[in-house]
Amino acid sequence: MLLARPPDLAPRAPWPDMPLVVWPAALAMWGPGDASSRHAHHAMHLLLRREGTLTFRAGTTKVDSRAAGVLVGPDVPHAIDATGGEVILLFVEPESQDGERLRASLDSPARLFDEAARDALLARLPRKGPIAHEAIGPWMEATLEALAGPTEVPAPRMHPRVRKLLRHLRAEPAPEDTSLEALSEVAGLSSGRLMHAFTESTGVPLRPYLLWLRLQRAAGALASGRTAGEAAHAAGFSDAAHLTRTFRRMFGTTPSFLQRRSQFVQAKARPTDAS
């Protein structure tokens, strides 16, 4: 999995003045491909190899699939090997409007794209060489529209009080008190009702989702130049080792990989409301 410093959101600055960033509704990244170990994270993501094919392994299966690209649903265990070529990634938060429409379009945990489908999705971008930063915004719009399900998503899953809580959790600066009691007060629900409504709305329990947000903030800190220890402390992890274990489980790679590779990868955020 590729990660990068989002220049729209987190220009490089010395710590500790640099704010931690929670990624937006959609975020595109592009650069050299690599291999990830088996992992799962809450964001949906599209990965397209600009030329050639990649290998994809879903769940616990030992069978690798070859494809030119893949769209992976939220919280789906998987591994991808795209070494030896350039890739473009599009991360989408499942609870955003874009995410709800993408989920409606998926009838399986992951969707594979052959080379013809990949070429159609990348038609707005050059096949080789550098990608102009200003070309990514229109590409994101067109790609999300091409992949999305119906404009009117039937039976929305998001509880309005959960949506309110998500806005609170993703605000800057991050809320200091994330105890169940404090979050229940923000949502205006009892603790038991909040836990039930949150899982029903997002597909994951509240505590794993909070860990996902902390990991996003740590990734933003790492890509902005902080050390693993600084990022761990700032995002609420006990130490760098705790961050590394969590990073590998959710992203299939290590914080040091992000630190080494971020200078070779560019990113652009989609300026839409995530909730």
Rank of each mutant, 00 (worst) to 15 (best):
V21Q: 03
V21E: 00
V21P: 01
V21R: 02
V21A: 03
V21N: 01
V21D: 00
V22L: 15
V22K: 05
V22M: 08
W23Q: 09
W23P: 02
P24S: 12
P24R: 08
P24L: 02
A25E: 15
A25P: 06
A25C: 10
A25F: 05
A25N: 06
A26L: 07
A26S: 13
L27C: 01
L27S: 00
A28M: 15
A28F: 15
A28C: 15
A28K: 13
A28E: 14
M29T: 10
M29V: 09
M29S: 08
M29H: 03
W30T: 06
W30R: 07
G31D: 07
G31W: 04
G31E: 05
G31K: 02
G31I: 03
P32G: 13
P32M: 14
P32E: 14
P32Q: 14
P32V: 14
P32F: 14
P32A: 14
P32R: 12
G33N: 08
G33Y: 06
G33P: 08
G33K: 05
G33H: 06
D34G: 13
D34I: 01
D34M: 10
D34C: 08
D34L: 11
A35H: 09
A35N: 03
A35E: 11
S36H: 12
S36G: 14
S36Y: 11
S36K: 10
S36R: 11
S37H: 10
S37C: 09
R38V: 13
R38T: 14
R38H: 09
R38P: 07
H39K: 12
H39V: 12
H39Q: 14
H39W: 11
H39P: 09
H39G: 12
A40P: 04
A40F: 12
A40C: 10
H41S: 04
H42W: 07
H42N: 04
H42V: 03
H42L: 08
A43H: 11
A43I: 04
A43L: 12
A43M: 13
M44Y: 03
M44S: 07
M44R: 07
H45T: 07
H45F: 15
H45N: 13
L46A: 02
L46D: 01
L46Y: 02
L46F: 06
L46M: 04
L47D: 03
L47G: 02
L47T: 14
L47C: 09
L47H: 08
L48C: 03
L48M: 06
R49N: 06
R49Y: 02
R49I: 00
R49D: 06
R50L: 00
R50S: 00
R50G: 00
R50I: 00
R50P: 00
E51I: 09
E51R: 15
E51S: 15
E51N: 12
E51K: 13
G52N: 09
G52W: 06
G52Q: 10
G52T: 12
T53K: 04
T53Q: 11
T53G: 03
T53H: 07
L54F: 07
L54R: 07
T55P: 02
T55C: 09
T55A: 14
T55K: 09
T55G: 10
F56G: 00
F56P: 01
F56D: 00
F56R: 01
R57P: 01
R57C: 11
R57I: 05
R57L: 11
R57A: 09
A58T: 01
A58P: 04
A58L: 12
A58E: 10
G59P: 02
G59L: 06
G59S: 07
G59R: 06
T60E: 14
T60P: 05
T60M: 08
T60D: 14
T61D: 15
